[in-house]
């Protein structure tokens, strides 16, 4: 175990370094796509913490993502908050919302937990529509460029700059990755995994299982909200579609594709799925078909996802 620390740090550091270097060699389109993939991967990493490591399958994470999205969009356009303030506020509110939802939803488990999260998320989606005066419902909110250009610590930050956005997304991804690694490799993470593997045994060993689960929901929800806020601010848009059930299913798919319970899995899954959709819609009108086939092949031949398979076959130390 001890010796793993170095190679784990090396591997994840290398991935981040590669992503950093990518901006110097990749074309404009790849750079723009990677920016989006990194932001969405934070969402998927948050999801993975709950699903992959703790074994709780939520069908309502879009509500956490949307919390960040709308705090950022409404905070900047309606209330007039600055971008840094609103970003921190979104993270804080994301934590509160996930604490509240977690406290309620964790009374249920298994499929009931899926439904409870789904229902809360659906209620959040409808609430966005209900307050259409402020959210403009499905049409959504555009954050003007003038808001996205602001002074910060004496510098002028312009979120319309693709290079800046790329590096910001990378920095956020690095932080999210660090948080996940720290949790997963700590005793706390081992308890989460123990809960996933056998909840009653974890209870018998004297762990307050519900509190650990709540912790996982809060970290997971907060990361999702962070990703949502970053998404709104970087891509200048928030709309109810991004709070719909499809956006709850996305992180589940990305996580499963990349490998549940691997720190890098969600990033890999997001990137691969993005590429599949992108390439497929470039040469066929039937891009959903490609996604469907990929998913079925995945469960037939790579049940543990990409990195899960890598861990199983070659790198047993992969966190």
């Amino acid at each position: 175990m001890k010796g793993d620390g170095a190679r784990i740090a090396l591997l994840h550091g290398a991935v981040l370094a590669l992503l950093f270097l990518a901006q110097f060699v990749a074309g404009d389109y790849v750079q723009l796509s990677l920016t989006r993939i990194m932001v969405l991967a934070i969402y998927a990493m948050g999801y993975n913490l709950l699903y992959g490591y703790t074994g709780l399958l939520s069908l309502g994470h879009a509500m956490f993502f949307a919390t960040g999205l709308y705090v950022a969009a409404i905070g900047t356009t309606r209330i007039g908050l600055g971008v840094p303030e609103v970003f921190l506020l979104a993270i804080a509110i994301g934590a509160l919302v996930s604490l509240a939802i977690g406290g309620l939803a964790l009374r249920a488990s298994g499929v009931a937990f899926m439904i409870v999260t789904l229902m809360f998320s659906q209620a959040a989606f409808l609430t966005i529509l209900y307050f259409g005066e402020y959210t403009r419902g499905d049409e959504g909110i555009v954050i003007a460029d003038s808001i996205r250009r602001f002074g910060f610590l004496g510098m002028t930050v312009d979120l319309a700059s693709a290079t800046l956005r790329y590096n910001l997304a990378l920095a956020l991804l690095a932080i999210a990755m660090g948080v996940c690694l720290a949790i997963v490799r700590s005793p706390l993470g081992h308890v989460l995994i123990a809960i996933r593997e056998n909840e009653s045994r974890a209870t018998m060993l004297g762990y307050d299982v519900t509190r650990y689960k709540l912790f996982a929901v809060v970290v997971s929800g907060t990361l999702s909200a962070t990703a949502g806020a970053a998404y709104a601010l970087m891509f200048a848009y928030a709309g109810s579609t991004l709070a719909s059930i499809q956006y709850s299913i996305h992180p589940l798919l990305w996580t499963l594709l990349g490998g549940a319970a691997t720190v890098l899995g969600p990033l890999a899954g997001t990137a691969v799925m993005y590429a599949v959709v992108d390439i497929a819609s470039g040469f066929t009108t039937a891009n959903l078909l490609a996604v469907g086939v990929v998913l079925i092949l995945l469960v037939l031949f790579f049940r543990k996802g990409l990195l899960g398979t890598v861990r199983q076959r070659w790198l047993p130390w992969l966190p």
Binding site: A286, L288, V293, L295, I296, L298, V299, L300, R303
Partner: peptide, 27 residues
């Protein structure tokens, strides 16, 4: 049958099937 009715794998596989059937119906 090939995935042994594993609950999680079934969810993913049937999500895949959902997309597949939708696209075929559309086409």
């Amino acid at each position: 049958r090939r995935i042994g009715y594993d609950p999680e794998a079934t969810i993913v596989a049937t999500i895949g099937l959902m997309f597949l059937i939708q696209q075929l119906a559309l086409s």
